[in-house]
Amino acid sequence: MKPNTTIVADARKTRLSPRNRLDWYLLAIVVLISCVAIIPFYLLVLLALKSPIGGLAAIRLMPDFHFVNFITAWQRSALGKAMFNSLVMTAGGVGLLVFLSSMAGYTIARFPGKLNRTIFTILLLCMMIPGIINTVPLYTLLIRLKGINTYWAMICVMAVNAMPFAIFLYSSFIRAMPVSLEESAIIDGCSWFEAFWRITFPLIGPVTSSVVILQGLGMWNNYAQAVFFLQDKAHRNIPLSISLFFQQYGADWPLMAAAAFLGLLPAVAAFLVFQRYFVEGITAGALKG
């Protein structure tokens, strides 16, 4: 990493080392908020480590350390395969989403002609329509396209569902960016299309990161579509696998929590990786300009 990047990046931030009273307050608030946020997660851990004796009523602040739940859950729900499936479909879905939506957001923000304005309006309207309406026709369509039990169909469906939001996000942020950087590239002999990929796309790293973080999570946790389009064991994703712990009456919460805990680790890791781009993407870009 270039040293000057970090120095400039620091300049915009107030230092939060407890030097004066205000900073102490802020620190206290941060600690408090973190505690509040961590409660459900801690309960998930308690639940995942719960022995069957006594059930949920026997949950105490100290875990039971019934680690065998993780092994049982992993095996019973074939979680390894499910994680692989979820990974392939989420990566594919996010890739497709970012590729198509960033382009669309760019042209909608920069060239608001009749075509682009119409497309944007339709997408916005669709964002407000409850998706449940298209379940049956979509199912019929996927049977005809032989898309049931395939990665590609789920990838397309999930990417499409996330598209209105992603395009909205991209177009709003690109509109707020100065057009001067692209214009200087045009003077250098680029086309607008090339200018997008060379200049704009690297600059909107934070936006791409939020799309990946927000929509990737939705795809990772997708149940509403998966329940219809992924039918055989070989293609089950994580939520479908976790749903195996629901019985006809009631559910096996400890095993479900154990499976859910394992299933969320990759999602948390992805968040930690992508939030770094929040800072680096924009400073690197800004320095170039």
Partner: peptide, 10 residues
């Protein structure tokens, strides 16, 4: 990426 994901894996 697009090609790989959109091509049916059947």
């Amino acid at each position: 990426l697009l090609a790989v994901t959109v091509l049916p894996v059947v």
